[in-house]
Design a protein around this nucleic acid. Structure first.
Lengths: 343, 343
DNA sequence: TTGTAGGCGTTATCAA
DNA sequence: TTGATAACGCCTACAA
């Protein structure tokens, strides 16, 4: 049902080689031929078959994006930026979700590899380096935040470190002495560990005592339950309870906030609140929520342009750095409640 | 660098035909041959080239997803569901964003078509039917919410109609008489028009007078500005101002809420609030926000299983319906302020 | 049950 | 500048 290059050639009165040269822009072609071919292609609604052309040229014009959890909205701006940038240079984007599982990651990588992707952007850090390495050997340009930042001499830890330090310093200066970092339970993902270590080391020397609290549930997509309120209630109202709750993610935050509301814990009077991840809702919430904000658009731009650059795409501009995270203090952070810090 | 089917054949001591038969599962193969081929493939890390096999079989094992605006978070669960379902049956998913533009939609459809996608899922309604029709003629299985629901004898309007009617009835019963539906300005998208008509007809006979308010800005991704607060202030505080604000989308809602806060308009005392689109944040907000909730997971499941079904995938189960929208009344809707409805 | 061989639609080489 | 032609890697009718 679809026209092939021979039909276009016949329609235009030239050879298939000429059609190919004109439409792909590679190789010489006279003005006459160019016009005739263009017209014929238009008339027949001809689109060259990507499979055939990939087979021949060994370039699929497809970029893969591997995301640890498609349920997490932070990946949306990421994905969007990758897609827009890719599209601008004629690339298609295949999304794959690893669901935080090493096995799924492997099978997804295999599928992407079989699809002959030209480049791969990993939004999280790879679990199976051998597998990824094999892709690289197969000629796929692979980028992930860790290797990217290391390549550019920009260790990942420093990206978030300054923002976390800012936040801790701010909290300490307001008289806070005890902080609870809340994250989902026994998660297979590693970010919460990285973040915890960052908070831990930032608190050092500020008189802030951090504590790590693990909540039930194991995904970004799990609904809140009443046990959340109970846990938070017991936590905050205990004798040496924290005066700061720090949520591990933008997705977790509303659940925690709901739990605090149920327990009648007022923010920021009884307890200050901070979360990783900004959003319009965090800003609109009353009190507006203090956040550690990451520019995922910029991160996506950095990774994508790096890949395009290494794929030899001209005009994609030089790769840029991933900008550092920023602490945005808002109304949810206030002075520590009286009597909370024994003089 | 990548192994070839011939190398696997050599390694396993069989012919390429046998390798193909074993690995694709089509055609007979002895136990011996199967074992030998599997082992050889594993050893060489062989993955059949998708381009070559697509070219030969005319099936790319790729499904396209065309989304009107990747910046809108409502499409994330949608995308995730499509990806998971597709992945389970060996399909890859290419995402494309039309950015609400007919031109971009056309070029995206062309790209998808050139990629030889087997199926296409459109999250919004198509703008250029001719273009879509051409895809269908090319053998691509196309589904979008409108044709899907019409096919299943389930007109799209009825999906949201009952929920909107429920909401209007609830509001009217609380004494509200004037309602303002707020949406982004001169948008190229059509949803807000559909929704407006739904609200308009639902208000009829309930003594509720609907009004359509157009705010500046033109995308789901545009940040709020102070003009929002000014507009809302003038709107709500006018003599015959509305006592209900109804936001067109989950993305717009926090901007409107922020504007109301700035104008010191209290919810639900001064004004009730409803929005299309649910989320954890809407639930966590104080007061919790009443919403018209759509089950996009279910919609994605319906569309994807329909496509898989029509692609002849076995085990994908029969196509399911798209469930109707639901009105979830919460704390943001309260009695109309005194004196607002002249007896 | 297996192997041989031709062709899917495109592009790169090469001779004209 | 153009056209004929040989691959690219795989699948499948067909013959063995």
């Amino acid at each position: 049902v679809r026209p092939d290059i021979r039909q276009v050639a016949a329609e235009a009165g030239v050879s298939t080689a000429t059609v190919s040269r004109v439409l792909s822009g590679r190789g010489p072609a006279s003005a006459d031929a160019t016009l005739a071919v263009r017209a014929a292609a238009q008339r027949l609604h001809y689109l060259p078959s990507a499979s055939a052309s990939s087979l021949r040229t060994d370039r699929s014009m497809i970029i893969g994006v591997l995301v640890p959890n498609l349920a997490n909205p932070v990946f949306l701006p990421f994905l969007r930026t990758v897609e827009h940038l890719a599209q601008r240079y004629g690339y298609s984007v295949i999304v794959a979700d690893t669901q935080h599982s090493a096995d799924i990651e492997r099978s997804q990588l295999d599928r992407l590899s079989a699809q002959q992707i030209d480049g791969l952007i990993m939004a999280g850090r790879p679990r199976d380096l051998d597998h990824v390495h094999r892709l690289t050997e197969a000629g796929v340009v692979v980028t992930d935040p860790v290797t990217f930042t290391e390549q550019e001499g920009y260790p990942l830890r420093t990206i978030a470190a300054a923002a976390v330090e800012d936040a801790c310093r701010h909290l300490a200066s307001l008289g806070h002495r005890r902080l609870a970092f809340v994250a989902r339970g026994h998660s297979r993902r590693r970010t919460s560990g990285d973040r915890w270590r960052l908070i831990e080391s930032s608190c050092r020397g500020l008189g802030l005592e951090p504590k790590r609290v693990t909540l039930g549930g194991d995904g970004d997509d799990i609904e809140g339950d009443t046990s959340m309120a109970v846990t938070l209630d017991a936590l905050v109202c205990s004798v040496e309870g924290p005066t700061v709750i720090w949520s591990n993610s933008h997705v977790l935050a509303p659940l925690v906030l709901e739990g605090l509301t149920v327990s009648a814990i007022d923010i920021p009077t009884d307890c200050s609140f901070v979360t990783f991840g900004d959003s319009l809702w965090a800003r609109a919430y009353r009190p507006s929520i203090s956040v550690i904000s990451d520019d995922l658009d910029a991160a996506a731009t950095a990774l994508t342009s790096s890949v395009l650059h290494r794929l030899g795409v001209t005009g994609a501009g030089p790769p840029v750095d991933i900008p550092a995270s920023v602490y945005r203090p808002r109304m949810s952070v206030g002075p520590a409640p009286l009597g909370s810090s024994p003089e």
